[in-house]
Computed example of a mutant assay.
Amino acid sequence: MSWEHVALVHGEAIPEERVAAFLDDGSKTPPMGAERTARAERQRRRWATQVVVIDELARRTCAERGLAPPAEVSPSRMLTVAEADVADLGSIVAAALAHSPAARLLLAELESEQRIPEEAVRDYYERNRDRYLTPQALRHGVDPYGTAAGPADFHPYEQARDGIERELRRAAGLRAFFGWLDQARTGVEFAPGHEHPGDPSHPDHEHRH
């Protein structure tokens, strides 16, 4: 097979130009030895390929769901991802969500489909009492799980409930997104040199999502 593309998604080619456009703005890396620089560049392209493929998969799923086509993103905005998102999601998924309108739209749709039982919200409140201490209780060093703590030391459940529900729905939406991605990737065949950066079948692999 002649590979003039980075991947096949259900048999349809994803051209190299899409990865090149994603990387056009470039990342400002410090000078390194020639061998390490070549390795880093190969890994950068593998990483970018994963982001572009997620964007393509999300576009297709949005179309299947009848969701409005998202607007394009300028390549000049690429490669600026919040560190907190990288820590929580992994760099590939964080970059995809930061720069793919389709991925964000799909995540929002999946999140809206989640139903959080009242029991789960209440259970979260009870298990994370330290998060709901009042400012006065914090100043006095009240132990939220100690016997001396009383109802007045906590923000009431009614005040905390909506925020907890949003947080749990967001987490459930992300789990659904990762589940969708695992399933969607089964229809992808990557070209040699564009495998996942953590794929142990190539010598440059490193396990950094």
Rank of each mutant, 00 (worst) to 15 (best):
G66W: 04
H99Q: 13
A7R: 00
A160Q: 14
A137Q: 03
L107K: 09
R44A: 10
A98E: 15
D88P: 01
V188H: 01
A34C: 01
D143H: 02
Y145E: 14
W3F: 11
G173W: 04
T186P: 00
G193Y: 09
L105R: 11
Q159R: 11
V6M: 10
P144I: 03
S91Y: 05
P31S: 00
I92H: 01
I54T: 09
E165L: 12
Q136F: 03
V19H: 01
Y145G: 11
S112K: 14
E12N: 00
P203A: 13
A191H: 10
R122S: 06
S91M: 12
A191C: 08
D153K: 03
F154H: 07
G146Q: 12
T147C: 01
G173F: 03
F154Y: 13
H140T: 05
G26T: 07
R129L: 15
H155P: 00
V53C: 02
P200Q: 06
G33S: 09
A96I: 03
V93D: 00
L133S: 01
R60F: 01
Y124S: 07
T147Y: 02
E158H: 07
A34Q: 08
I92W: 00
T134F: 03
A95M: 01
E12R: 07
A98K: 10
E12T: 04
R127D: 15
R60V: 01
H5M: 07
T29L: 05
Y125R: 08
E35W: 06
A176Y: 12
T147W: 02
H194M: 10
R185Y: 06
F22A: 06
R208N: 04
G173N: 08
V51C: 01
H5S: 08
I116C: 11
D88V: 07
R65A: 13
E16A: 12
H207R: 14
G90E: 02
R46Q: 10
R36E: 14
A172F: 13
V9A: 04
R131C: 09
G179H: 11
G193K: 10
H155A: 05
D123H: 15
P101D: 13
P70L: 06
E206K: 11
D85C: 01
R161D: 06
L67Y: 06
E165R: 15
Q136W: 06
R122T: 10
G26Q: 09
R161E: 15
G179I: 09
S74N: 14
A94I: 03
A34E: 12
V93L: 14
R115W: 08
P151Y: 03
L57K: 09
D182P: 01
W3H: 05
R45W: 06
P200L: 06
R129Q: 15
R169K: 15
T186I: 02
Y124H: 15
E109G: 01
D204E: 08
R161C: 09
E17Y: 04
R42L: 07
A20G: 05
E119R: 13
R169H: 13
C62Y: 03
V9T: 05
V86A: 10
V53F: 00
H196K: 04
T49P: 00
S74R: 14
H10P: 00
V52T: 11
E83R: 15
A149P: 13
E126K: 11
P135Y: 10
P197N: 08
H5R: 07
M1K: 11
D130S: 12
D123V: 06
E206D: 12
A71H: 09
P192G: 08
E4T: 12
Y124M: 02
L57I: 11
